[in-house]
Computed example of a mutant assay.
Amino acid sequence: MSDIVVRLLLEEDWQTYRQARLDALQDSPDAFAASYEDEEKLDESEWRDRMNRSRRLVAEKDGKTVGVVSVGSRPDTDDRTTELFGLWVVPEQRGSGVAWQLVKAGARQASEDGFGFLAYWVGTDNGRGVAFASSFGFRPTDARRPMRVGGGDDDEEMRMIYSLHDPVNE
């Protein structure tokens, strides 16, 4: 069995990120606040701009992309906190530890970038997502917002927070 390698993508890796993002949108269209049709039309300069707005991490196994996550600040957070978002793992690798490795690498990157906390938004009715984040060390907060995708009028997500002052789980 080969190991999962998680690496930080640089601007010149925009095509790798583009393909992973488009694969995620095709596989899980209700999980993201974007559509495959819209993002597939973006040109190279728009993808390069995205690479510079947030950190993009990709998980690879045997040279193939098996997952992706992004880390970056959002306008609604303070300067000590950054967000983990866009987490996706190819279906055949779910439950194999890829998501854990991506979140661990994302937390490490956020810490290296000087942040003290990592936020992660999870649907309040997504028991599996809440359990996963909790097992990693994220704790629920009182912050709630309407679901941006795939939810009904009353569906909401909660902000979970992870202190980067604690050692990242091994």
Rank of each mutant, 00 (worst) to 15 (best):
M1A: 14
D3V: 12
V5A: 13
V6F: 01
L8C: 06
L10S: 15
L10P: 02
E11V: 15
E12G: 03
D13T: 10
D13V: 05
T16G: 09
T16E: 15
R18H: 05
R18M: 06
R21S: 08
R21A: 08
R21G: 05
A24R: 06
D27E: 14
S28M: 09
P29Q: 05
A31E: 12
F32W: 08
A33C: 10
S35K: 02
Y36Q: 13
E37H: 11
D38F: 04
D38Q: 14
E39N: 12
E39M: 14
E40L: 12
K41H: 12
L42W: 08
D43Q: 12
S45T: 15
S45G: 09
E46S: 14
E46D: 13
R48Q: 15
D49G: 13
R50N: 10
M51E: 07
M51F: 03
N52C: 07
R53W: 00
S54M: 00
R56A: 05
R56K: 08
L57M: 06
K64G: 00
K64H: 09
T65Y: 02
V66L: 00
V68A: 06
S70Q: 02
S70P: 00
V71I: 04
V71A: 10
S73G: 10
S73N: 04
R74M: 11
P75M: 03
P75K: 06
T77W: 00
D79I: 01
R80H: 07
R80F: 05
T81P: 02
T82F: 09
F85T: 01
F85W: 05
L87W: 03
L87R: 02
V89T: 10
Q93C: 02
R94V: 03
V98G: 01
V98N: 01
W100R: 13
W100S: 03
K104W: 05
A107Q: 11
R108P: 00
A110W: 06
D113V: 05
D113A: 15
D113E: 15
G114V: 08
G114W: 05
G116Q: 11
F117I: 05
F117T: 11
F117C: 07
Y120N: 15
W121E: 12
V122F: 05
T124H: 02
D125F: 03
D125R: 05
N126C: 04
N126F: 11
N126G: 07
V130E: 07
A131P: 00
A131W: 13
A133G: 12
S134L: 03
F136N: 06
G137H: 07
G137S: 07
F138M: 12
F138P: 12
R139M: 09
R139D: 13
R139K: 14
T141Y: 04
R144C: 01
R145H: 13
G150F: 00
G151F: 02
G152L: 06
G152H: 10
D153I: 10
D153E: 15
D153R: 15
D154V: 13
E156L: 07
E156Y: 12
M158H: 07
M158P: 06
M160G: 08
S163P: 10
S163Q: 09
L164Q: 11
D166H: 10
P167K: 03
P167S: 03
N169V: 09
N169E: 10
E170Y: 03
E170M: 04
